[in-house]
């Protein structure tokens, strides 16, 4: 209990998942999951393969549409099909097992594509509204002020500056102009993390970020994730790296058969597993 008080951040709830279910055809993968994720928490999700942990993660930002249940993020239920999911995904970063860097774009463009195109889209919308406003202002006594509009080149320059800062942080600024096919797995994954960071997300979802890496490259990716954790980023990490989960996570979930079978603070989780199923699992992987 004292451990819980010490480790759990007192910040407000960022993501609130209620009764989340997901079926593929007649096969029910997630059988009702409830979870609150507070700001600054680092949640590690472990479990045997096929238990639904990746599906769970992919449901959080609706990469898979939940069959039932709700996901509250900033007061909005993401599972509601009427919600414009794209707006909210901008604040939920995701890092994939296979990196998924855009093969047709340079590293720099990989990082800036989303920030630039989203900012430019908002800019275009403001321009259109300004057009109507200035037209209607002709007939108004009290003129409405025009919305601020930025130059397209400025938006790009700003995004590139930020991208270079981030690349500098991971020591890969010399790779800005190369294509992903020339990078090592570890470099790709670190750039994928930076790409997610460029959107200034409130939470980042990691889907087995080190599983596709050669062993000697796992370290560099985990180090970057540790730095992120120290900076206070909220993280949900599906992983097989037990040591990492124990060291970095503030809470560890054990998923089994589409449900959260056990959850605890990392120390207690690994040293005093409660259920027989978790004891069995840990004895196999540790």
């Amino acid at each position: 209990m004292t451990e819980e008080l010490k480790q759990s951040p007192s910040e407000e709830v960022l993501l609130s998942i209620r009764g989340l279910k997901k079926s593929f055809g007649s096969h029910e993968v997630l059988k009702g999951i409830d979870l609150d994720i507070r700001e600054g928490e680092k949640i590690a999700v472990i479990g045997p393969s096929g238990c639904g942990k990746s599906t769970f993660l992919r449901c959080i930002n609706c990469m898979e549409d939940p069959t039932a249940g709700s996901i509250f993020f900033e007061g909005v239920d993401l599972a509601d099909m009427k919600v414009d999911i794209n707006v909210h995904r901008q604040k939920i970063g995701m890092v994939f097992q296979q990196f998924n860097l855009f093969n047709n774009l340079t590293v720099l463009r990989n990082i800036t594509l989303a920030p630039v195109s989203i900012a430019q889209k908002a800019n275009r919308k403001r321009k259109v509204r300004n057009f109507f406003r200035s037209f209607l202002n002709l007939f108004r006594k009290e003129k409405k002020p025009l919305l601020p509009v930025r130059k397209s080149a400025d938006i790009r320059a700003e995004a590139e500056k930020r991208a270079f800062e981030l690349l500098e942080r991971i020591g890969l600024s010399d790779k800005a102009e190369v294509y992903p096919s020339t990078l090592s797995g570890g470099q790709k994954q670190r750039i994928a993390i930076v790409r997610a960071l460029a959107m200034d997300p409130d939470v980042i979802l990691f889907d087995e970020p080190t599983s596709a890496l050669d062993p000697e490259m796992v370290g560099e990716v985990l180090d970057l994730m540790k730095k992120l954790a120290e900076d206070g980023m909220t993280m949900v990490i599906v992983t097989h790296e037990m040591g990492f989960a124990r060291e970095v996570a503030t809470r560890v979930l054990f998923m089994d058969d589409g449900q959260i079978a056990e959850e605890n603070m990392p120390e207690a989780f690994f040293t005093r597993p409660q259920s027989a199923r978790l004891q069995d699992f840990l004895s196999k992987v540790l």
């Binding site: 794209n86 995904r89 994939f96």
Partner: peptide, 12 residues
């Protein structure tokens, strides 16, 4: 995965 990565960043 290419499309997924784009969608996950909030692109339409």
């Amino acid at each position: 995965g290419q499309l997924e990565a784009g969608r996950a960043l909030g692109l339409t």
